[in-house]
């Protein structure tokens, strides 16, 4: 039976809680209700209220309490109801959690789960992709899985990691993406990108929900004869530049794609990394497809114009291919 992206995260968390009694979850409505998106559905019945903690509406409190419990040797997994509300716990994440190890060598083994992303008519406060707020904070790890396989393997690695991990789950993938998962136990390493589709003519580098857009575009353009390689970053911090550089060395053309807004998106960092290291391999300018620099608008006509989609990727990729 195929497993959805959402169930994959649920299974990964469940297995980690079975494996290690120090793992527990906390957040708003995560207990009896099973979480706003039902990721922890059934957890409180199985693991009890000691390990599935329904909190007040206090994001700073939730993250801070996770840090405190983490410092004492537990492995808390905190849920933000929507990634948009992670800003309410910002100081605890970027100043407390991120800087403990560097300052006084104290590990903060916490996971902050954050359902992010647009395309669900959520408007400006239920659609954001706030990953780059954290990618520019050394000391954090930032994970953005795109497939059910990776979602399960990465949540398990995040729980086992001894540093704070911000785990972005794309809401649009929760129930849309399914695949058969291996029966046995597995993990996916944090900090490793993956070549999801091999090709010769150009590379698309992306992550999160845009992986599927990239693959659709690659399929379309294959009919026109283009051979497109697709790299899924999977983790944004630490960033696996080697996998990206190896792919671009091979294809000599690169399109950088993300749902996040343009300025300060990961594409900018990748573009510089590529030109710094392998400029002489490039046969064309580096191209990006991203959301524009606006808040995420609510109305369907505006949101459609805002979000990158297959047609927008095809147009740019075709141009690049023919360059």
């Amino acid at each position: 039976m195929p497993t959805t992206y959402l169930e994959a995260i649920r299974e990964g968390l469940w297995e980690e809680m079975e494996r290690d009694p120090n793992v527990f979850v906390l957040g708003e409505d995560v207990g009896v209700y099973g979480g706003a998106f039902k990721v922890t559905d059934g957890f409180i019945q199985h693991f009890g209220a000691r390990r599935v903690v329904d909190t007040p509406i206090s994001e700073s409190g939730i993250v801070g309490a996770a840090i405190g419990a983490g410092l004492m040797g537990l492995r808390p997994v905190a849920e933000m109801q929507f990634a948009d509300f992670i800003s309410c716990g910002f100081d605890q994440i970027v100043n407390f959690a991120a800087k403990c190890r560097y300052r006084w060598n104290a590990p903060v083994p916490i996971v902050v789960r954050a359902p992010s992303g647009g395309g669900i008519h959520g408007g400006p406060f239920h659609s954001q992709n706030p990953e780059m707020w954290f990618v520019r904070t050394p000391g954090l790890k930032v994970v953005c899985p795109a497939t059910a396989y990776d979602a399960k393997g990465l949540i398990k690695s995040a729980v086992r990691d001894n540093d704070p991990v911000i785990f972005f789950e794309h809401k649009g993938l929760y129930r849309r993406i399914k695949e058969d998962l291996p029966a046995g136990e597995y993990t996916v390493p944090i900090g490793k990108a993956k070549v999801v589709r091999e090709g010769r003519d150009l590379t698309i580098v992306t992550y999160g929900a845009m992986l599927w857009t990239a693959l659709d575009a690659a399929d379309e353009l294959a009919r026109e004869g283009a051979s497109i390689e697709v790299v899924d970053l999977r983790t944004l911090l630490p960033l696996d530049r080697e996998t990206v550089l190896a792919s671009v060395k091979k294809t000599s053309k690169v399109l950088l794609l993300h749902e996040d807004t343009r300025t300060g998106g990961i594409a900018g960092e990748l573009a510089v990394s590529i030109t710094e290291s392998i400029f002489e391999y490039l046969d064309a300018p580096i191209v990006r497809v991203t959301a524009p620099d606006t808040p995420v608008p609510f109305s369907p006509t505006l949101e459609e114009a805002f979000l990158p989609n297959t047609a927008k990727v095809i147009e740019k990729a075709r141009w690049l291919w023919r360059y």
Partner: peptide
Amino acid sequence: MGRVDGLTRGRDGNMH
């Protein structure tokens, strides 16, 4: 309904 005559001109929804 996300229309242009909403108070947020379609930029936001519901009671926002």
